[in-house]
């Protein structure tokens, strides 16, 4: 019992160290520690978890496998959550149609693979482009005319758009679920654990997309314009930023990521149907809130947290709790830190 407590304490310390901003800046100012901080933290956390598993007498192979599965599921949530958070950051809208954009991405990928017989990468590109175009069209047609309307009008429009897409989807794709063909069959042995290739592909593609997104947002002109616009719209206009264009770019990028999630989910959970976007959409939104809405790394973190915890709950408790965990976490975070894990309480200087 004492080993359990000890290992839990160790894990808690790691989490605290990761979250404590003050301590981090202090440590980071020391060049010797700067580059070892995160690796050391991860190592420490891994030790703690390992210790805990031993103490509990758990099956480590199984646990590791579940963690990998959790990360691949979390990748999907994270990719969808990014679109929510980016759009929210720019126009303060919770785009309820975003889950359905993900659904359309899944279908676009499906047809690319089955009808057009394309390999994975071109199919991924098609899914991303299709979702991206759809996202931009939705913004132009439904949201842009409401630029100066109250936010509630916009929100209701988004819900309407979501219902419209689901119903058009039923008409176009029929409500019979379609099954993705198996694209990745292999599985690998990692530390004596067998891991499906498809899981690794999901995770790898997601990581690549996120690195790309970080580069886009931090170092390119449209990306910087996006950040500027989310921080101060009038000042952004004074810089000569074309607000409408940046909003379009935001929808394009966010929707493309959802499209990628759509095809990625298809290679692991092959059943797709027109209503498939509802639940993942909601959970991804929860992920965005948990990470701190409007904050890009927050959406990534939130998605992974939800994916992993959902998988562990399914594996160790019961699959009937699967959907409850996301919303449980949401309630917890709203009670403890309403601005989200990476969110800052808003401070303004006069």
């Amino acid at each position: 019992m004492s080993r359990v407590v000890a290992s839990l304490l160790l894990c808690a310390v790691c989490i605290l160290l990761a979250l404590l901003r003050k301590y981090r800046t202090h440590v980071v100012s020391n060049p010797a520690l700067k580059y070892s901080y995160y690796p050391a933290l991860i190592l420490l956390a891994a030790l703690g978890i390992n210790y805990l598993l031993t103490a509990l007498g758990a099956n480590k192979v199984y646990t590791f496998q579940q963690a990998v599965y959790g990360l691949s599921l979390g990748s999907v949530y994270a990719l969808i959550a990014l679109g929510y958070t980016m759009v929210y950051g720019i126009i303060r809208l919770i785009n309820f149609a975003h889950g359905d954009i993900y659904m359309v991405g899944a279908y676009a990928g499906y047809y690319a693979v089955t009808v057009m017989h394309l390999p994975f990468v071109p199919a991924l590109v098609i899914a991303m482009v299709a979702s991206s175009v759809l996202g931009v069209l939705i913004e132009r047609i439904a949201y842009k005319p409401l630029r100066n309307s109250p936010r509630i009008t916009l929100l209701i429009t988004a819900i309407g758009m979501s219902l419209l897409l689901e119903n058009v989807g039923q008409k176009l794709f029929t409500s019979t679920p379609r099954t993705y063909p198996t694209i990745f069959k292999a599985s690998y042995e990692v530390f004596g654990v067998s891991v499906d290739q498809s899981r690794i592909i999901i995770f790898a593609v997601t990581v690549l997309l996120m690195i790309g997104l970080q580069y886009f947002v931090n170092y390119t002109k449209p990306g910087m314009a996006m950040r500027a616009l989310s921080q101060d719209r009038d000042a952004a206009r004074l810089m000569g930023i074309n607000v409408d264009r940046v909003i379009s770019v935001t929808f394009a990028v966010g929707s493309a990521l959802a499209g990628a999630a759509g095809i990625l989910v298809g290679i692991v959970y092959p059943q797709i149907k027109p209503t498939m976007g509802i639940m993942p959409g909601l959970k991804a939104f929860v992920a965005a809130v948990i990470g701190g809405i409007g904050i890009i790394p927050g959406a990534m973190l939130g998605g992974m947290i939800i994916g992993v915890s959902e998988n562990f709950v399914t594996a160790y408790i019961s699959s009937s709790w699967r959907d409850a965990i996301a919303f449980g976490l949401l309630i917890l975070i709203l009670l403890v830190k309403p601005s989200g894990l990476l969110g800052k309480s808003v401070r303004e200087k006069v």
Partner: peptide
């Protein structure tokens, strides 16, 4: 002032040269 609070000084200045 309306500077972009979460951007660095450098980035703020680059935004000024956006056009």
């Amino acid at each position: 002032r309306k500077v972009f609070p979460a951007m660095t000084v450098n980035e703020n200045l680059l935004m000024g040269a956006y056009s």
